[in-house]
Amino acid sequence: MQTPLAFLNDAKRITVFAGHYGSGKTNAAINYALALRDFHDQVMIADLDIVNPYFRTKDGAKVLEKKGIRLISSPFANSNVDTPALPPDTYAILDNKEAYGVLDVGGDDRGALALGRYVPSLLKEQNYEMLLVINRFRPLTQNAEDTEEIVREIEQAAGLSFTGIVHNSNLGYETTAADVLHSIPYAEDVSKRLQLPIRMTTVSEHLCGELTNQIENLLPMTIYVQQSWEHGV
């Protein structure tokens, strides 16, 4: 068995998380940044989500701070100002070549538009990875064909192509190990169709024990963007 998370040794300097909105980008990005911190001294994460004012990386701010990860987010995030503002210090990630950076991009093509202004820097440095977060249980990305449609829109808006996949199929708090296992053929279909490798599979921490010998490059997820009313249905 491989050392868990060993794949993070080969992380590119900058990792971009993008995908269909609601695919789980923010939670994946936060958990990835936290895991990355165990391998590298300087880790920063930037919240570039200009689309969704309700759930943003800033919600996980305390956890990140505690682990010494710098969070770069819009001064208006989680305030009542409904302004699609990008954090001005995102360039700190691009300019500080010693640091490992995570960019959490908003959903769909509209969210990806915000990435555009950083693309010249990313292309110049080349040391980046742009990851597509996918969830088979989202209604508009239930098969490879539909997923590709959204992928092409995102790539066009961002002006950057994906280099890998984060498989994050889940049904929220109802997710079982079987749900994840049954979604593997979907992830493989997407991988084949888009000619992109599956870089990691993200699963809720409590399912990791069951899945660790069955799936490569597993990243355990703790949900940091969660509210008090999530249960009690």
């Binding site: 609601g22 249980f137 989202r138 209604p139 889940n170 049904l171 929220g172 109802e174």
Partner: peptide
């Protein structure tokens, strides 16, 4: 099979 959706999407669907 269930799907994971936002409330706003659910009502639109």
């Amino acid at each position: 099979e269930k799907v994971l959706v936002k409330g706003n999407e659910a009502l639109a669907k």
